[in-house]
Amino acid sequence: MADPQFVRVAERHRAPVAIVIDGRPFQAVAGDTLLTALLLAGARVRVAEFGPGDRAGFCLMGACQDCWVNLADGTRTRACTTPVADGLSVLTA
């Protein structure tokens, strides 16, 4: 997996939350958004339908709509406004 995009610089002491990214376990912490977790794990949130290439969100405030992702259960969610929860399983491609 690519080097993480985000760097956690504060608020490190929070309860761990176990999620699954593309089938691999990842440990986020309580209060992370799904987008934060994805960008602490790697550098991709989704693959853009019409290109070019991978996307990693843009506005982070629910306006640009460029971080909608598929969850493993088939539902879709906007990563920047979705808090992580134990067992959340997301597909980035």
Binding site: Q5, G31, D32, L40, A48, A56, G57, C59, L60, M61
Partner: peptide, 24 residues
């Protein structure tokens, strides 16, 4: 559109509400 390009507001949200810098 490259991963790693964000708005200024987005970078601020990452820091304030997530405790993260958007890059090194």
């Amino acid at each position: 559109t490259l991963p790693g390009a964000f708005t200024l507001g987005g970078a601020q949200v990452a820091l304030k509400a997530q405790g993260c810098a958007v890059g090194r």
